Simulated assay, not measured.
Amino acid sequence: MNRGIASLGMYDHPAQHAANDRLWGEIARRLDARGIRARRRLDRSRSVEAIWRAPDLLFAQTCGYPLVSDPDLALRVIGVPVYDVPGCASGEHVSHIVVRSDDPAATLDAFRDRRAAINSRRSNSGHNLFRATVAPLARDGRFFAAVIETGSHRASVDAVRRGRADIAAIDAVTFAALRRFEPAAIAGLRILANTAASPTLPFVTARSTSIATVAALRIALAEAVADPSLADVRAALFLADVIPAGEDRYARVRALENDAVAAGYPVLQ
């Protein structure tokens, strides 16, 4: 096959670039040994959204919400990562609802008519899980006075810290990376609550990828996760294991959306 592209852009803090590069390099080497040609360099030249739609996509990680809600996103799940992070276990993850440490509000209900930040309305961790948590508290389809869309979890953290917003839902793995590699970014913030859990961000390939190549990807990924020589790489990425899975595992992500709609809160606002 042609040399397919690869991306690990969902959890790719600058301090994790070397670990992601090495992880993919080891996966690509194993694929090559099975006759599957793969580009050795991760693609950081374009957005993850563009990469998900690339016809020559071989390997990437995607958000679970567009996976189940965007009919034009033609992806096949390879596996579900398990992260060694608080709030994450057995292929699940939560979002931390964060506020400023000096904000006296002690409950989520106390943030009614305050300002929220979300990374994207297409995000599971920043929007879908947040909406599901707020839905029981909403009145007439509203809860916040305003919702700003920042473009990234890192920007949402900054918006809360600088006072442009009062509250945000931050993916637990992203928050762990900031805590380890960039603690100043979350200085002055505290975790108010956690959202419900949902499946972690899946490793995927294009739906057009052959079944034989999908099988080889799963084997190569499993070998890399079990390789003792890559222990430091996995530690840098908080990656503990990968569970084989398919798209059906993400039905719960869509169910959270449906529950919010049924509660009269289809839009986080």
Rank of each mutant, 00 (worst) to 15 (best):
L73E: 01
S198C: 12
R39Y: 00
M10I: 15
F59P: 03
R34C: 10
D113C: 11
P14M: 09
I148P: 04
I27D: 09
V94G: 01
R100M: 12
S208H: 12
I27Y: 09
P199E: 02
R41S: 13
V225Y: 03
A255Q: 14
A138P: 09
A231K: 12
G246K: 09
S210G: 15
A15M: 15
H13P: 02
W24P: 05
Y250S: 05
V82Y: 00
V82L: 05
D12W: 01
L192N: 03
L75Y: 00
A196I: 03
S90L: 03
R53T: 05
L8F: 07
R37Q: 14
A226S: 15
L239N: 04
V160P: 09
E49N: 11
L217E: 05
P202M: 01
R154T: 12
D72H: 11
E49D: 14
V98G: 02
D109C: 03
V85K: 08
F238K: 01
N2R: 15
A187T: 09
S7Q: 02
A28L: 13
V134W: 08
T200Y: 00
R154S: 13
P104V: 02
R234P: 01
Q269F: 06
Q269I: 04
A212D: 14
I167E: 05
A185F: 03
V94P: 01
Y265H: 15
D171L: 07
H153R: 08
Y65Q: 07
D232T: 02
A105V: 13
I27N: 08
R115S: 10
G264T: 08
V267L: 12
N124G: 13
A15Y: 02
A33K: 10
L42I: 06
A19G: 00
D109M: 05
R131E: 01
R139K: 15
I191A: 07
A138E: 11
V68A: 07
T107L: 12
V204Y: 03
P228K: 13
A38M: 13
R37S: 14
N258K: 14
A185V: 08
A220R: 11
A187N: 09
F111V: 00
A245G: 15
D12G: 05
I167N: 11
S7Y: 03
V242W: 01
A138F: 08
R53M: 06
L73K: 03
T62D: 13
A220F: 08
D12C: 13
T200I: 01
P104M: 09
F59E: 03
V160N: 11
V68L: 04
R115E: 09
A89Q: 12
L23T: 01
L129S: 14
V242T: 09
D43K: 01
Y250W: 15
E257N: 09
L230T: 04
A38H: 05
I191T: 14
A50W: 00
L201W: 01
Q269Y: 06
R3H: 14
L217F: 09
